[in-house]
Design a protein around this nucleic acid. Structure first.
Length: 193
DNA sequence: GCTAGGCAGGAACCCCTCCTCCCCT
């Protein structure tokens, strides 16, 4: 069983994977229930369309930031190299991030590989319960865990740092083994490096 | 805190469909 994990976060031009593009991705390597210092990935990506003023106000990412950046698919090829044989972790990854990664691969026409992935919402549900009405958004989870965000929210670098802290806490609460055996997984598509 | 789209998962019911909620940018 793999024991290396990559926690990642995407910022995009909107919510629909078919219509919108990723514009920023950040990731950190995670091992033995903690982030690995110095092992990180970050890139901007240039979307097909200009970034709307709403997304700029939401994420702080401007059209100037992505000018000259590689295409989303080119960024994912590099990201896939960084991921290597690790298992991915993202918050709401099953329903959001994974869809963007798959759609980006399809648009780029690249060969894909399947990467096992954990949605950190499942870790939160395992710790805090899955009753109707119990919410698991990242802001709520970090508040429950007593984490004070001193990062820039809705910037992938800040969010992934925060998610790394949250996953560390959840990991400890659940007393997970190094390989997180027994935690539900799904598949995420990445380009073949 | 408003907006957008789509879906996982529960409810009701009996295995497939419908509906509601949640979460991401």
């Amino acid at each position: 069983m793999r024991r290396d994990f990559v926690i990642y976060d995407l910022e995009t031009t909107g919510l629909s994977p078919d219509e919108e593009d990723l514009i920023q991705i950040a990731a950190i390597r995670f091992r033995d229930g903690k982030p690995v210092t110095g092992e990180s990935f970050f890139s901007y990506a240039k979307p097909r369309r200009a970034i709307s003023s709403f997304i700029t106000s939401y994420t702080g990412i401007t059209n100037g930031d992505v000018r000259g950046a590689p295409s989303p698919c080119e960024v994912l090829v590099e990201f896939s190299r960084f991921v290597g044989g690790s298992t991915l972790i993202a918050h709401n990854g099953l329903r959001f991030d994974s869809k963007f990664l798959a759609a980006t691969c399809v648009r780029g026409g690249v060969a894909r590989r399947e990467v096992p992935s954990i949605d950190s919402i499942w870790l939160s549900k395992a710790v805090f319960g899955n009753q109707r009405g119990t919410r698991h958004g990242l802001d709520i989870v970090i508040e429950r865990l007593g984490i004070r965000p001193d990062v820039r929210r809705h910037d992938a670098r800040g969010d992934v740092e925060l998610l790394g802290l949250a996953v560390s806490h959840l990991w400890r609460h659940l007393n997970l083994p190094h390989d997180a055996a027994g935690v539900r997984r799904h598949e995420t598509h990445l380009p073949k490096p």
